Amino acid sequence: MIRHLVLFKLNEGVERSEPRVAAGAAAFEALDGQVPEIAHWECAWNFSDRPIAYDYAINCAVADRAALQRYLEHPAHQAAAGQWREFATWVIADYEF
């Protein structure tokens, strides 16, 4: 199995309450039912207010590296990630478990 972790940081001046941010979060929340490769899916807003904290996280699992690639290329994933490119930056980690 592959764990795919993504941590998002809203860009300077961007607020969670903005409609485009809410739409981006909703797009990620909907991926679990749209992308068949997803074996496990979690995404949520971070509640920590520590200065090093990121704002939003995705924790998902797929069967293998080929499934991860299909997930990344899936049109629903591409559309969701495209929304976030407008207002956030992120870091990822992919590892086998």
Results as ranks from 00 to 15, higher is better:
38 I>G: 03
7 L>K: 08
68 L>I: 10
30 A>Q: 05
39 A>Q: 15
36 P>V: 12
37 E>L: 03
88 A>E: 10
21 V>G: 00
34 Q>E: 15
81 A>P: 04
55 D>G: 05
95 Y>T: 08
84 W>Y: 10
27 A>T: 08
88 A>M: 11
25 A>C: 06
74 H>M: 03
57 A>C: 13
84 W>G: 10
21 V>I: 03
1 M>K: 11
75 P>Q: 09
77 H>N: 08
33 G>S: 11
3 R>K: 15
38 I>Y: 08
34 Q>V: 06
35 V>G: 11
85 R>P: 07
31 L>I: 04
20 R>G: 06
8 F>K: 03
10 L>I: 03
16 R>T: 04
38 I>S: 05
58 I>H: 00
8 F>C: 07
71 Y>K: 05
38 I>V: 15
58 I>Q: 00
24 G>W: 00
7 L>G: 13
39 A>W: 10
12 E>F: 09
67 A>N: 05
70 R>C: 03
56 Y>W: 04
54 Y>A: 07
59 N>W: 06
4 H>V: 11
25 A>E: 01
80 A>W: 00
33 G>N: 11
51 P>Y: 04
37 E>A: 12
22 A>V: 14
65 R>P: 04
93 A>F: 12
21 V>F: 00
2 I>Q: 12
54 Y>G: 08
69 Q>G: 11
28 F>Y: 02
32 D>Q: 14
45 W>I: 05
48 S>F: 02
42 E>R: 14
85 R>S: 15
66 A>R: 08
56 Y>R: 02
85 R>N: 14
72 L>F: 12
1 M>T: 14
60 C>G: 05
46 N>Q: 09
42 E>F: 13
15 E>F: 06
7 L>P: 06
74 H>N: 08
96 E>M: 06
69 Q>D: 13
63 A>I: 05
14 V>I: 15
88 A>W: 01
53 A>S: 13
87 F>G: 07
66 A>K: 07
75 P>H: 10
22 A>Y: 09
